[in-house]
């Protein structure tokens, strides 16, 4: 998934990764790669780590992302600045705009207000992980059909919020959508279309209220 990043960008080779585990490396190296994160968590438990960069493994869109990160690096920064996953956007970096929304498990969260180190061991889904084999998800398709986007910068966040809502509640009404999307900001003013798209993805069609009238 991830291409080799330039120097100091946090990516590191498998060898340095295990080396950085220090004495644990031997144990971890012999174990399944999938258990590395669990091992790490156990080792790090009650152990003080940082402030310098430490190995962090994130499971993003079904793939492992192994990074060297200072504990203060947020999940959003890890995705956008330490990997090539720029789908989640930085709109405020203060948990107010929702452009950075990703799913932890099935739960939408603001990735800007979550430390990457805390997000280990949980399946993370970003907007890049929704389309399967180039086929748009139901929610993505509805956003496209209903033109529920303008500049598109808030779109990944809204798509994630709506996706999470439909997982929790497959037949939401307008009030449910408003409640679920209250934490997402759009400055282009695409809200009515986002509402229509969310409902369409839930199988509820709303008609456009636009009317064209000839002047002459």
């Amino acid at each position: 998934m991830k291409k080799m990043e330039p120097e100091n960008r946090g990516a590191f080779s498998r060898r340095t990764f295990f080396k950085s585990l220090g004495t644990v490396a031997a144990t971890a190296a012999t174990a399944q790669v999938t258990s590395v994160a669990a091992e790490l968590e156990k080792v790090n438990a009650e152990k003080i780590i940082g402030p310098a960069a430490v190995p962090v493994t994130l499971k993003v869109n079904g793939e492992k992302l192994k990074l060297m990160l200072e504990p203060r690096v947020t999940l959003l920064d890890a995705l956008r600045n330490y990997s090539s996953l720029t789908g989640a956007k930085e709109g405020c970096d203060r948990a107010t705009c929702g452009a950075c929304t990703v799913l932890l498990g099935d739960t939408p969260i603001y990735s800007c207000q979550k430390l990457a180190i805390e997000a280990q061991g949980v399946e993370i889904t970003t907007v890049e992980g929704l389309a399967k084999n180039e086929k748009l998800s139901k929610v993505q398709q509805a956003f496209l059909t209903k033109d529920a986007l303008q500049c598109g910068y808030c779109t990944p966040g809204f798509v994630m919020s709506v996706t999470a809502l439909l997982k929790k509640n497959p037949r939401p009404n307008a009030a449910d959508v408003k409640h679920a999307c209250a934490g997402n900001t759009c400055r282009c003013g695409t809200h009515p279309r986002i509402l229509a798209a969310a409902l369409q993805a839930a199988g509820i069609e709303t008609a456009s209220k636009t009317e064209v009238i000839d002047y002459v």
């Binding site: 968590e41 438990a45 009650e46 003080i48 940082g50 504990p71 203060r72 430390l115």
Partner: peptide, 26 residues
């Protein structure tokens, strides 16, 4: 955000010990 260290506590008592000084609960 300044750099900080990080630890995961598994009991309230160890959390309290870790946080003593200039620590904060997360």
């Amino acid at each position: 955000m300044k750099a900080f260290q990080y630890a995961t506590a598994h009991s309230a008592d160890s959390a309290r010990e870790l946080v003593a000084g200039k620590g904060a609960y997360l």
